[in-house]
Amino acid sequence: MSAIAQQHAIQTGRGSLAGRVSDFLWKHPHVFLTILLGPPLLWLGIIYLGSLLALLLQSFFSIDDYSGLINYEFTLATYRQLLNDANFDIIIRTILMAAIVTLFSAVIAFPIAYYAARYARGKWKAIFYLGVMLPLWSSYLVKIYAWKLILAKEGILTWLVTKLNLLWLLDAWLSLPVIGGNSLSVSYTGTFIVFVYVWMPFMILPIQAALERVPTNLIEASSDLGGTPQQTFRHVLFPLALPGIVAGSIFTFSLTLGDYIIPQIIGSSRLFIGQAVYAQQGTAGNIPLAAAFTVVPIVIMGLYLWMARRMGAFDAL
């Protein structure tokens, strides 16, 4: 209090309007804070949280089977519908896909992140960084399109496999139940590859950030004490990188959970959560069921974020 008063005794030359306004804000930090925070909070609170809550509320309504109109009475019937066989299958399928995509993303991302964190220096560090950032930021649809070109029956992959005389292997893979199909672009395998391709870059930077904090002498100490590279990886490197992996998996998992465009363009006709939401709100006009479907990823991601927080993953973001 006295510090502020003192400062005022010195500064007398702020007679202008701007000066008086800024003095007023300095003396009333709460007003200042309100002015700073007000617009963004109003925007996010009304437009974003408001719509989100409105959507969640609608999941407690139901749709009249005969008229197709929304019945505005509180009910849990819509949630019960989520658990019928067809819808439950969709949920399990999506979660499984998200888990496998996350696992493979971590496996592919780890060496890139490790090399960039430990061995790349100077120019190479920049090349690695841009090498990850450019595909991460380049157009989502163009990336999917690129894979449509690759996986098409007449595309580059079939050409390559034929040149290598491995066509029998591809055919054998495609004839497998569930993961196979007429061609890769209409199979689960294709959906999986594209998911990994599109979301894997999000895994690299958090792992790299976690690995950069691992002191080199820890790894040297481990090998000095007779640890083989495998043991060093299992007992030193991996546990220390885990928060980064979990942080990256937040993105790969969440983004796979909610995606509806990739399985629609490259995939079989069996639905994922995102597609179910899209179909329910669009052609079926069943907003309550669509809303109930969106609650599934929200709850899963809520639990996931809570677990990630406990593992210290947010420090690696």
């Binding site: 409105a54 609608q58 909610g258």
Partner: peptide, 23 residues
């Protein structure tokens, strides 16, 4: 506040989309 700002991209885009549409 940080959480609120991050939420629109942390939750799948389809949720933001359908929430806005129904609003």
């Amino acid at each position: 506040i940080s959480l609120l700002v991050i939420l629109p991209i942390a939750l799948p885009g389809i949720i933001t989309g359908i929430a806005l549409r129904s609003a």
